[in-house]
């Protein structure tokens, strides 16, 4: 599906942001560059910009995710958009209104953009068929989370100065991770080398056709990376025999102080949050100067501002 049209005249992205695959290198770089300019503005006394005055951005959240919702809300408000938060509890069709009916309601309200978080993979793609406004995927099931990948790329670029040629290890539950999918796609587009690391049970079938390397051995990968990103691992996966125990997982794939020492001097440690301290990441690693976890949150607002600006700025 082609969601983003490149137009030399407008030099930007239009339509929807459903997948990191919607962005080619030029469009992704434009988002990052725009975010950088916007980040510079966030230091000044008046943070608000008039750019999206009169536009309505709906945060349609079918899953609790306070941090992502607040990040999008802050981004939209700094651009002076009107923000409507619409949280839907429960996620099955049997409870409450269907996604389609909700979409028609938002359509009638004249939403210029709908930021959707949903437990079902592909829900944003469905929504995009039912509303005229721009749909931004803020995390769908075990599919994608493109703005997270953009903010991760932004963080890497601002810490390490470049993306092209970087070696990035993404460690953990790749199978269920929307962050991993979006990062693998986006980082590949931007010229980084991605290695997905995890137990074989948590790497998806067919991963060999992705534009990435894979490894089961974290310790072998660490000395060669510029970035190591730990994914959140839910303890419930243990009940489903994806791995035997939290302890064994931490021992084989957890980022602890000993593993931190195996990294090259300049390498950084990332985590999309929320963290399971002691599981995929040790507390002293999370709080080390190499960790970008707090920056990632701050960068999230700038990146989401850039996405909203580029999607909505030119929309008639």
């Amino acid at each position: 599906m082609t969601n983003l049209e490149q137009s030399p005249d407008r030099g930007g992205i239009t339509g929807h942001l459903l997948s990191a695959a919607d962005l080619d290198a030029a469009a992704a770089t434009q988002v990052l560059d725009t975010a950088a300019e916007l980040a510079a503005l966030s230091d000044r006394s008046v943070k608000k910009l008039p750019t999206l005055r009169g536009r309505t951005v709906v945060n349609l959240f079918y899953e609790d995710s306070t941090r992502t919702r607040i990040s999008f809300e802050a981004a939209a408000k700094r651009l002076s958009a009107d923000v409507i938060n619409f949280s839907v509890k429960g996620s099955s069709v049997s409870k409450g209104e269907s996604l389609k009916d909700t979409a028609l309601t938002l359509q009638a309200m004249g939403a210029d953009a709908v930021v959707i978080r949903h437990a079902a993979s592909g829900a944003p793609h469905r929504l995009a068929r039912w509303v005229d406004g721009s749909v931004v995927n803020a995390g769908d099931g075990t599919h994608e989370h493109p703005t997270q990948a953009l903010l991760d790329a932004y963080t890497m670029r601002s810490r390490l100065g470049r993306l092209s040629g970087l070696t990035v290890a993404i460690v953990g539950d790749v199978l269920h991770s929307r962050v991993a999918r979006s990062n693998a796609l986006l980082l590949n587009t931007l010229g980084a080398d991605v290695t997905l690391v995890g137990p074989p049970t948590l790497l998806p079938v067919g991963v060999d056709s992705w534009p990435v390397k894979t490894s089961y051995d974290l310790d072998a990968v660490l000395p060669t990376v510029d970035v190591v990103m730990a994914l959140r691992v839910q303890r419930e996966r243990m009940e489903d025999s994806f791995f035997p125990s939290a302890r064994e997982y931490a021992r084989r794939y957890g980022l602890d102080a000993a593993r931190l020492r195996k990294l090259p001097e300049h390498a950084i440690v990332m985590h999309p949050g929320p963290m399971n301290r002691g599981m995929e990441i040790a507390p002293d690693v999370a709080d080390s100067p190499r960790s970008t976890i707090v920056e990632q949150v701050a960068n999230g607002v700038s990146v989401r501002m850039a996405v909203l600006y580029l999607l909505l700025g030119g929309q008639v």
């Binding site: 075990t142 998806p204 079938v205 067919g206 991963v207 056709s209």
Partner: peptide, 18 residues
């Protein structure tokens, strides 16, 4: 399970039906 387990199910994030 949602979709044939293969390259596409992994990419689309839909649980595979092997």
């Amino acid at each position: 399970a949602q979709l044939h387990e293969g390259e596409l199910s992994g990419r689309l994030g839909l649980a595979g039906w092997p």
